[in-house]
């Protein structure tokens, strides 16, 4: 394993200072559950790692005027414990099938986003909740829809001097429900073949609003917008749900790899979009 320098700033300002010296390859380090694996496999070759575990400004989950604010360093395990988080079914379900209990204790939400794997399991639920991502640097703060943050496999809109500081999820007071499923080749510690998250807002028999997000079936986690359009403002019934699932399976762009064929993945998008819509609806 190649040598690197490890900085352990005590606060956000120091962390941002460390990132600002862009004369070397400097990377943030959160739980390290991707970063250390990547260094060993020589996929990442940082000169300097800026460890974030002492940066308290990146921690904490709060709920303020219609928004859930999730600190960058929130671990996956916290999504299974903190009542502010656990009430969101899709997030909780994703966390519950994420890696294994040990990894969940270290892995953070920002790390999952920062790695920008198309198969990152927290990403479809965050897209389904229409999360905004906040980025901070010495020059200031900016916010963008998470959906625009992912540019491709391992590629994001983050500048090298920026940190992900938190995520903001709009929380509606109206009737909403969500659901998530991960299809892997075993029950834990599996890389998703397909993952599906849906979020629904109901108005009696009607779908007032809907978001469908897919993982591992495109170069980046994606919203199935055409499928969403089919349901938007429509009656929730079998025909509409089936049609939306079919369209979702058409608009994704999976690949063949050693785990499964593109065809199979497409078909599973069809099955699981349907099932997750039904499951979320049942939860109202």
């Amino acid at each position: 394993m190649r040598d690197f320098e490890l900085l352990q700033p005590k606060n956000l300002a120091d962390a941002l200072d460390a990132l600002a010296q862009n004369n070397a390859s400097v990377h943030p380090l959160a739980g390290g559950t991707d970063m250390l694996v990547d260094i060993r496999a020589q996929r990442a070759q940082p000169d300097v790692l800026v460890a974030l575990q002492n940066v308290n400004e990146l921690r904490g989950v709060t709920r303020t005027n219609g928004h859930l604010r999730v600190g960058a360093s929130t671990t996956i395990a916290e999504f299974l414990k903190n009542p502010l988080l656990t009430e969101h079914d899709a997030l909780r379900q994703a966390a519950s099938v994420f890696a294994n209990p040990l990894i969940r204790n270290s892995a953070t939400i920002a790390g999952n986003i920062g790695s920008a794997s198309p198969a990152g399991d927290m990403l479809p639920p965050l897209l389904a909740f229409d999360a905004q991502i906040e980025l901070v640097s010495k020059n200031g703060t900016r916010t963008m829809p998470l959906n625009e943050f992912f540019l491709g496999p391992r590629k994001t809109a983050r500048n090298a001097n920026e940190l992900i500081s938190n995520l903001q999820l709009p929380i509606s007071n109206l009737q909403t429900a969500s659901a998530f499923y991960k299809l892997g080749l075993r029950q834990a510690d599996a890389i998703s073949l397909v993952s599906v998250a849906v979020w629904l807002q109901r108005d009696s028999d009607m779908i007032r609003d809907v978001r469908i997000a897919l993982g591992a079936v495109a170069p980046r986690p994606m919203r199935a917008t055409r499928a969403e359009e089919i349901l938007h403002g429509q009656i929730f019934n079998e025909t509409n749900v089936k049609e939306a699932a079919r369209v979702a399976s058409e608009e994704c762009a999976p690949i063949d790899d050693l785990r499964a064929s593109a065809n199979y993945r497409r078909r599973m998008v069809n099955v699981y979009v349907r099932r997750m819509l039904e499951q979320a609806w049942r939860n109202f």
């Binding site: 080749l185 075993r186 029950q187 834990a188 599996a190 890389i191 050693l258």
Partner: peptide
């Protein structure tokens, strides 16, 4: 070998 590590070569976990 397309399965050079335990990320690709899957053995059952306690949950399986």
């Amino acid at each position: 070998t397309l399965t050079p590590s335990f990320a690709e070569y899957l053995i059952p976990t306690a949950s399986d």
